[in-house]
Amino acid sequence: MTLTKKDVRKFLSEYKIVALLIVIVIIWAFFGYLTYDSELGGSQFLTPRNFSNLLRQMAITGMLASAMVFVIVAGEIDLSVGSLLGLLGGIAAVMDVTYSLPLWQTITVVIAMGLFFGLMVGWLTAYLGIPSFIVTLGGQLAFRGMVLGLTGGITIAPVHPELKFIGQGYLPELAGNAGGVLLFLVLVFLAFRTRSNRQKHNLSVPTMPAEVGRLLFAGLIILGFVLTLNDYQGVPVPVLVLLIILAVFTVIGNKTTFGRHIYAVGSNMEATRLSGVNVAYVKMMVFALMGLMCAFAGLTTTARLAAGTPSAGFGNELDAIASCFIGGTSMRGGVGSVSGALVGAVIMASLDNGMSMMGIDTFWQQIVKGIILVAAVYMDIVSSGNQRG
Rank of each mutant, 00 (worst) to 15 (best):
K5F: 05
L21V: 02
L21F: 01
I22A: 09
I26A: 15
I27A: 12
I27L: 13
D37L: 09
D37G: 12
E39M: 03
Q44M: 11
F70I: 15
E76C: 06
I77H: 04
G82I: 11
G82P: 09
L85G: 13
G90H: 10
A93Q: 08
M95N: 01
V97N: 03
T98K: 06
Y99E: 09
W104G: 14
T108D: 06
G118P: 04
V121H: 12
L124Y: 00
L124T: 00
T125N: 14
L141I: 05
R144S: 14
G153I: 15
F165C: 11
L171W: 14
N177S: 10
N177H: 14
G179A: 02
L183C: 07
T194K: 07
S196L: 03
K200G: 10
E211D: 04
L220T: 13
F225K: 05
V251R: 03
V251P: 06
K255V: 02
F258W: 14
Y263M: 15
L292Q: 02
M293N: 10
G298S: 05
T300V: 15
T302M: 13
T302V: 11
A303Q: 02
R304Q: 03
T309C: 06
N316D: 03
E317P: 06
A320E: 08
I321R: 01
S323E: 07
C324F: 01
C324L: 05
S330A: 15
G334M: 00
S337P: 00
A345Q: 04
I347P: 04
M355D: 14
S356W: 04
S356A: 10
S356R: 09
M357P: 11
I360K: 02
G370Q: 10
G370D: 08
I371S: 13
V374I: 15
D380W: 02
G385R: 02
R388P: 07
